[in-house]
């Protein structure tokens, strides 16, 4: 009897350390952040000394034009960055998924940008965008064009950081898409070829649909990451000119350190978390719907 009970307990005992670490390492900080977002908390106070203000921080933020602008910048930035990176990354993967001499060297070269530390990437681009000594404006001037105010014009600044992000993160999508491509079932591709499908048809009807589950996850990862990007933009523009490149994570960091409002910063982080959570859920639901539809079609085909 006792032995049976111990046996039944065993799996839980093995799970316990992992569960404990999860609770301490994951739930505690998140709980702390959620609690902090209900406080009027200045960093000179201990958390116990801060006043409880309920939902005031959340309401303040909704009425705060700077926060709304910053949220808008983040959404624009993420949307453009993810779409462009997906298109280029998948395109590159489709192009390079073949046996050319030296392809492995090329592949390694392509993923180099991703391996550089973000601060360095920021500095590198800042100098390349430099109004007088930067390589872009020097080249433009040499060719007889007007120099472009890369970082000093609010319209261009956002474009500039988007270009830098695309340069850095397209490789991420490229390697994942390439891995997906190479694990596609060769049989279906062969069947398509025998049926006389052209290159384009193979891509559109066979490769892309089969890669879709991987691509959705990739896009999601990129999306989450792009919402949290901080260092590159911090170094390149520090949010300026005006608020034109002040993405949410930068605003959160400034609210905590410059404005010394930890409660407000926590509330902002929670909004960010909510946005990301919503996007994730939508993506997964979409994925599920597509999958179940595919299954239904397959079933119909089998029955027929």
């Amino acid at each position: 009897m006792a032995a049976a009970q111990i046996k039944r307990m065993t799996p839980y005992m093995f799970l316990a350390p992992a569960a404990a670490i999860m609770i301490v390492g994951l739930l505690y900080p998140i709980g702390y952040m959620v609690y902090a977002s209900f406080l009027d908390w200045n960093p000179s106070q201990r958390i116990g000394e801060a006043d409880f203000v309920g939902l005031r921080n959340y309401v303040t933020l909704l009425n705060d034009a700077a926060f709304r602008e910053s949220a808008g910048v983040t959404l624009t930035f993420s949307a453009i960055v993810v779409v462009v990176e997906m298109v280029i990354g998948v395109g590159l993967a489709l192009l390079l998924d073949r046996n050319i001499r030296g392809i492995s060297v090329l592949r390694t070269l392509f993923i180099l940008p991703m391996m550089i530390a973000p601060i360095v990437v920021g500095l590198m681009w800042r100098y390349m965008y430099h109004p007088s000594v930067g390589i872009f404006n020097q080249t433009l001037k040499e060719w007889g064009f007007e120099p472009i105010p890369w970082l000093s014009d609010s319209g261009w600044a956002l474009t500039s950081i988007i270009i830098a992000d695309i340069w850095q993160w397209t490789p991420f999508i490229f390697i994942l898409a390439l891995a997906a491509l190479q694990s596609l079932p060769r049989t279906s591709l062969e069947a398509a070829r025998i049926d006389g499908a052209s290159g384009w048809q193979q891509i559109v009807y066979i490769k892309l649909p089969l890669m879709m589950p991987v691509l959705v996850v990739t896009a999601l990862l990129r999306l989450i990451d792009s919402f949290k990007v901080l260092e590159v933009i911090l170094v390149m523009t520090n949010g300026g000119p005006g608020l034109s490149t002040e993405i949410l994570s930068l605003r959160i960091s400034r609210t905590a350190s410059e404005f010394r409002e930890l409660g407000l910063a926590a509330a902002m982080s929670n909004y960010l978390l909510l946005i990301l959570l919503t996007l994730t859920v939508i993506m997964f639901v979409y994925n599920k719907v597509v999958e179940s539809r595919a299954q239904a079609i397959r079933q119909q085909a089998e029955e027929a």
């Binding site: 200045n42 700077a66 000093s152 014009d153 609010s154 300026g240 000119p241 005006g242 608020l243 400034r254 410059e258 404005f259 010394r260 409002e261």
Partner: peptide, 21 residues
């Protein structure tokens, strides 16, 4: 004053808009 950080940031942002936009 303790709230200066916030006012300073707002002032700096508005002036940057004057200079660039």
């Amino acid at each position: 004053i303790p709230v200066w950080g916030k006012i300073n940031a707002d002032l700096g942002t508005a002036l940057s808009k004057v200079l660039t936009e």
